[in-house]
Amino acid sequence: MTTPMAFPDLATSVVPFVAGLVIALALIWAVWMGIRFRRREPGPPDPADQPKLPRTGAVHEVREMREPDEVPHTEDGSRLTPHELNGHGSATSRRSKDQRPRRWGRGGSGAFGSGGPGST
């Protein structure tokens, strides 16, 4: 009388073990290669190599009001393509004489859809 085996075929027990072993070896190889690549990288920069402030001190932003460049009109009312615009499509403007920032007028809504009555 024979008793049934838990793994009747040798392949059903060896193949998963070999596949797991191959995956484990591939992961070990990947970590080893990563360590080798990290060793070849240059170290962190010295404090002397860090950027320095200019002698004049920190550079601050400059705010100024600009006048927009008007879009030219065509005789036949057709649309202009970017290469036909002044400055070849890039935004050009001049420094405005009035440097006070524009504020919303009293009674203005402030933004589209804000729920206010708007300018009446």
Rank of each mutant, 00 (worst) to 15 (best):
S119F: 05
T56F: 01
I23P: 00
H88D: 12
F37H: 15
E67V: 10
H83Y: 14
P16L: 12
V71R: 15
M65I: 12
V15M: 08
D46N: 01
V31F: 04
G77T: 06
R38A: 05
W32N: 03
P44V: 00
L80T: 00
G34K: 02
G116D: 10
G87Y: 07
E64M: 13
T12E: 14
V71D: 10
E75W: 05
V22I: 12
G20E: 01
F112D: 07
E84S: 14
G89M: 11
H88R: 11
H83R: 09
H73V: 13
A30R: 06
K97E: 04
W104K: 11
P45K: 11
P8F: 13
R100E: 13
R39Q: 00
F17K: 08
W32Q: 03
S109R: 03
V62R: 05
M65H: 00
R95W: 13
P117D: 07
R55D: 03
A91C: 13
F37Y: 08
V15S: 08
G108E: 07
P82T: 08
G110M: 08
G113W: 14
V14E: 09
E61V: 10
L80M: 03
A19E: 12
P68K: 01
E67R: 14
G118T: 05
R63G: 03
P68S: 08
V62Y: 06
S93T: 07
V59Y: 01
G108V: 03
A48M: 14
G43I: 04
E70F: 06
A24W: 01
R63I: 08
R103Y: 09
P54S: 02
